[in-house]
Design a protein around this nucleic acid. Structure first.
Length: 311
DNA sequence: AGCCAGGCTCTCG
DNA sequence: CGAGAGCATGGC
């Protein structure tokens, strides 16, 4: 089993990045972070594989090892899994310009210290980001996480690797096979089940082309995605941030995000979507997406991070 | 018990 | 056009 080495752009902290990705739980759907190892089940060329990443370096001089586990690992698979894991952990993102730009920002200066080395993790695919976002629309984070995890377990493909049962994120066909009733039983509303099935059929027939989206500007991607039923501005921005790794994407409609901004910067005065978009653009500009990641990191962590206090 | 959650669509003035 | 209803589950 050949282990290969990955070199992230420093600073990179695997612990902080993987914890954020799994919502500070050892296991969240297809994401596993346990015993200092970040694992993710993937289907590559028809093979069910588990990529396992461990840190063998430091935050300032990071290095990771990748092991690929599975029942027979095709020759090219290790390289493909390495690419996927590198993209999901956003290994090549350089945080330094963002840190420099936000040095004078009272809240982010504290957050970037608390979460120093947090790279903005990505989903494995545009489809995955869309499904996760739709599940999370409007409902609380706790409920969204429960339904997301339940969905992966019910519809993903399970296999044994690394001493336990792991699950891939369900493919478009898995959702289509499951159908409306099955999705409803997982806790989705009838509407959301329809949205997801619609998007799954677009993904399955190639209408939703992730390769093409990568070539488009933020605005073009949003214009295209909102054509999909169930996808509005918030979801489109979420996809830009989570699946396409756009560092300047900003889900201005996000209620929780607006509340943090309100508390951290506006003394509690509430802020609307339009105003939030302008605020983020003016204050963070090209780094609004990274700022969002750090604001969410603050939100996701149960206890108040050291050095950050909201009034 | 009832209200609100990391939105979106549909309907009705 | 803008405003409002309805949606699912889990926590408070």
């Amino acid at each position: 089993m050949p282990a290969i080495t990955l070199i992230p752009t420093p600073p990179f902290d695997l612990h902080v990045t993987a914890s954020h990705q799994t919502y500070y739980q050892p296991e969240f759907g297809a994401e596993i972070y346990r015993d200092s190892a970040y694992s993710r089940a993937l289907e590559v060329d028809g093979s069910l594989l588990l990529g396992v990443v461990r840190s063998v370096g430091t935050i300032e001089a990071p290095a990771l090892t990748l092991e690929v586990l599975g029942d027979g690992v095709p020759p090219r698979a290790t390289e493909l899994v390495a690419q996927e894991m590198a993209r999901m952990l956003a290994l090549t993102v350089n945080l330094r310009p963002f840190y420099t730009a936000t040095r004078e920002d009272p809240f982010l200066a504290a957050a970037t210290q608390s979460f120093y080395g947090l790279h903005p993790p990505q989903t494995a695919s545009v489809f995955e980001a869309l499904v996760m976002a739709i599940i999370g629309q409007q409902i609380s984070g706790v409920v969204a996480r429960a339904i997301r995890a339940r969905t992966v377990r019910a519809l993903g493909t399970s296999f044994t690797a690394g001493g336990g049962t792991v699950y891939t994120f369900p493919k478009a066909l898995d959702f289509l096979r499951a159908g409306q009733e099955r999705l409803r039983a997982l806790g989705l509303s009838a509407r959301k089940a329809e949205y997801i099935l619609g998007i799954a059929s677009h993904a399955a027939d190639g209408t939703l082309d992730p390769r093409r989206l990568e070539t488009l500007s933020n605005q073009q991607v949003v214009e295209e995605l909102v054509q999909l039923r169930g996808v509005g501005p918030w979801t489109a921005q979420w996809v830009l941030l989570r699946a396409l790794g756009r560092a300047d994407a900003f889900p201005a409609g996000d209620l929780a995000l607006r509340r943090v901004i309100s508390q951290a910067y506006l003394g509690g005065r509430s802020i609307g979507e339009t105003e939030a978009a302008a605020f983020a653009q003016e204050r963070w500009g090209a780094y609004a997406g990274l700022a969002t990641t750090y604001l969410f990191a603050y939100l996701r962590r149960r206890r108040t991070p050291e050095g950050i206090s909201l009034s």
